[in-house]
Design a protein around this nucleic acid. Sequence first.
DNA 1: AAAAAATAGTTGACACAACAACTATGCAGG
DNA 2: CCTGCATAGTTGTTGTGTCAACTATTTTTT
Lengths: 152, 152
Amino acid sequence: MQKSVGRLVSILYRKNQVYLNCALKSAQITASELPFLLYFFRNDTTAGISQEALSAYLLIDKAATARAVQSLLKKGFLRKEKDEADRRANKIFLTELGEQQRTVVQARLQQWTQFLTEGLDAQSVDTMFHVLEQMVEKMETTDWHNIWRNAE
Amino acid sequence: MQKSVGRLVSILYRKNQVYLNCALKSAQITASELPFLLYFFRNDTTAGISQEALSAYLLIDKAATARAVQSLLKKGFLRKEKDEADRRANKIFLTELGEQQRTVVQARLQQWTQFLTEGLDAQSVDTMFHVLEQMVEKMETTDWHNIWRNAE
DNA sequence: AAAAAATAGTTGACACAACAACTATGCAGG
DNA sequence: CCTGCATAGTTGTTGTGTCAACTATTTTTT
């Protein structure tokens, strides 16, 4: 049986979604909203951030960003202003209510990582992280939409 | 910025889907159908295989399996028989036409892997594979639906 | 300064996968 | 036997994400 990174990543992704939706249900946070909240938890956004920047960082389509942000606004976890310096853009902020979710969210996330990696060699886990980062980096910086054309 | 396996896996998964849909368009194969075709390419299925078994191996919901198989039947890549030994089950086979897709499919897949891993340390890539496998293994064999309940 | 191109965001349509409810078949204990 | 439970598969509904088309602004070109 040949190894397939596609299969593994697919399973990890899908099960992760199920876990998150389940584990964060009580906090009213869905798997699709989580990446955005995490961005606010982990970065300085006191000046607000545009949806474009969120999309670019998460490599998520701007349509999905628009919908997730809308949903988080409605739930009161985020707040939106028009950017007066560039009136095309929004400036998105984390609200106090959003900030209050940090603890639960990080706990659930930490428990998932803990579950996935416990018993594994820490060094190997680090290596995995690093390789995944390199592959994502490559996708960000290369136009790979036609990579097979070069080969024929 | 804290490391997040979730973010990396998510990006890998989504971009992989986009790549596959693009690279296999000419072969009339979609990203959702691919895992099933691959199973037939990589395993002995001369006796046919049930949808249940496919679902179990790919960890894909049986509903998704039913739809992908339906679609591949319609395209003529797979063939279906009632299992006479257990009339609830289907026996699914790869057709000659399906077999003919092997070359293109494997080429496109190989090119993607090549692109993702070129320039990376081969040893590290192996380690990544192994760690991903271990994590998937853990998800298969553990009931993790409430892992955070233990912790409080 | 006017025209053209680029950028930020929204919306509609569709692909993909999960869950629940359902049908049909098989099996086990009374 | 037959009643109840388990298994294989199908279908409806919903959440998630991509792409394309559109509006509204900003920037660049001429």
